[in-house]
Design a protein around this nucleic acid. Structure first.
Lengths: 328, 328
DNA sequence: TTGTACGCGTTATCAG
DNA sequence: CTGATAACGCGTACAA
């Protein structure tokens, strides 16, 4: 029976036919758990994300899934909610389930968990960011630093000289990189960044909300703000509305990550678009290359995908008079 | 060893200690596949959605996941992309993997797949919509019909008398219900709905795009349009922009589903909010009730969650003069 | 308290 | 081409 179902072997015609009929009748399905135990492969991909409800994440997940479907794989998605403890649990459960490969958007403290995975010979890739002490695992990402720098240069080209940023936890690689890009652009333009204009450690839309309120409550507001990601930007929009601050007349804003709806916001949000879906599928390809033995787990396999600065209308040109206004 | 790891049995102190030390040293993790085979339970929940990248879906998935995490379960998410064939495959693979329970947002033709699940004794719940011939499985949803009717009543109260709708495939229960609600509101107000103003069969944002273009190209445009869901609405916004049609002066629009960003759109979109997260967690609770033997797979367990009409500024009052304009 | 043997449903291998 | 059988690693029941 096995032979007719799994194919490959040669079976007599009548036997084949009898078997398929019986299978139809009982609508028998082979037990994948038993098969997994026997073969040592489960056909499962583990995907650890911070929050599947984040559009960027969901898109990436979709990219990975589509890649998985081609090979008859399925994806086990778990959200860590930026909690390192939770992340460790999830990674452990991936190991327990002996998923065939793992992709993860780490909080930044996943070292042990990842070590276990590679020790168990489970192909692993990082998405978006690399935890400090996890080398030897490929990473699929965009160039946060230079994308952020370009975005801030755009602000500076518009005449802004007093900039602010709302950023994520310093320990998160992308947050650090985007902040570094922000500072790099300022430095090269000879601009001083007021420390109080850089608010770090925020996550999620209500994090963005709080961060923007803090900036708006500053004695002297910056004229432009750079947001670490889409979620923070959404929260920031809420804060702006509450305070009656209008983009771009009262403040300019630019954000990392783009969304279907950013073009339709009032005003359309200038944003740095990342190819989320492609990031996910690239991660999938890397994983399958390794599973197929095409590539080893060697380093040097990082994939850097391009970003695109989409200039819309949330950033205003600073006029001489307005600059003067602020000085007084 | 088993006894110390799994607890329950009584084991001598030194043995316990030696075991845990050895486990630590080798960082041994029990093989979940083998355990699953032996116990007949995998600790897996299957979640079949149309598209995990849809924000509504992602939120619901998150709700289900959070409920699952409490019981040490994980969620296997698969996107059908509204393809019945794909959906059948996924359901079959859920059966093969012997997931412990399944939640699904069906395309509408999942009868066979679901039958197999219940025959195999796998607790199953429907989310959002019930395929025509699948009874005997509980459904978690909102009241599409009355929510749609209320929304359209809102339009009518504003003075609109010539309404349009862009809807999903007629075979999708929610699409049918929302359209029915639309018609009900019109009928009770004595309004005639021009057939060409009802565009059915669209999905995804580019579906919404096409549908809205069709409406805009009508010889006589309706004054207000009701959108079946969030994705269609996003596509519709793009179409409006292309054609230079402005909400709400040139056209009023209202949509099923709300989003973080709809309040910030220009103009803020009036929308019917569904508690997506709660829908997901309710589905999870139903599933676990059945797994825990608290409840049988009996019918009558449907859960209907409330919606909320969030009136913003995408719908205009129709003035007598403007109505007159159209007549000429 | 501890050791041991069997079964879970496949896959893979080896004889026939 | 076909049938029989040993893993796979863990639960569980039973014996010591």
């Amino acid at each position: 029976m096995v032979r007719v179902l799994n194919g490959g072997a040669t079976v007599s015609a009548d036997r084949t036919e009898r078997v398929i009929r019986a299978v139809k009748e009982l609508d028998y399905v082979t037990n994948g758990v038993a098969a997994g135990l026997s073969r040592g492969r489960t056909g499962l991909l583990g995907l650890l994300v911070s929050d599947i409800a984040n559009p960027f994440t969901a898109q990436a997940a979709r990219g990975l899934e589509d890649e998985a479907v081609r090979r008859n794989y399925q994806v086990l998605i778990s959200s860590s909610d930026f909690d390192p403890g939770r992340e460790a649990q999830i990674l452990k459960s991936f190991a327990r389930r002996t998923v065939d490969a793992v992709a993860l958007m780490s909080t930044g403290e996943a070292a042990e968990g990842v070590q276990r995975l590679i020790r168990n010979g489970i192909p692993t890739v990082l998405i978006d960011r690399r935890p400090p002490d996890v080398l030897s695992v490929p990473l699929v990402r965009t160039d946060s630093l230079s994308a952020a720098r370009d975005a801030v240069r755009h602000l500076i080209a518009l005449g802004h000289t007093d900039l602010g940023m709302i950023s994520g936890p310093p320990g998160m690689a992308t947050a650090a990189q985007r902040l570094a890009g922000f500072r790099a652009a300022c430095t090269e333009a000879g601009l001083r960044v007021r420390p109080e204009c850089v608010r770090e450690g925020f996550l999620g839309s209500e994090g963005g909300h709080r961060a923007m309120l803090e900036i708006l409550d500053l004695p002297v507001r910056p004229t432009a703000v750079f947001s670490f990601n889409n979620m923070l930007a959404v929260g920031a929009l809420g804060a702006l509305r509450e305070r009656g601050v209008h983009l771009p007349e009262d403040l300019s804003m630019i954000t990392f990550d783009d969304t279907d709806l950013f073009p339709f916001i009032d005003p359309p949000l200038t944003a740095i678009a990342q190819p989320a879906y492609e990031i996910g599928s690239a991660a999938g390809k890397l994983l399958f290359d390794e599973l197929d033995g095409i590539a080893g787990p060697a380093a040097g396999r990082d994939v850097v995908l391009p970003t695109e600065l989409r200039v819309r209308r949330s950033c205003a040109q600073v006029t001489a008079t307005r600059a003067a206004d602020r000085i007084q």
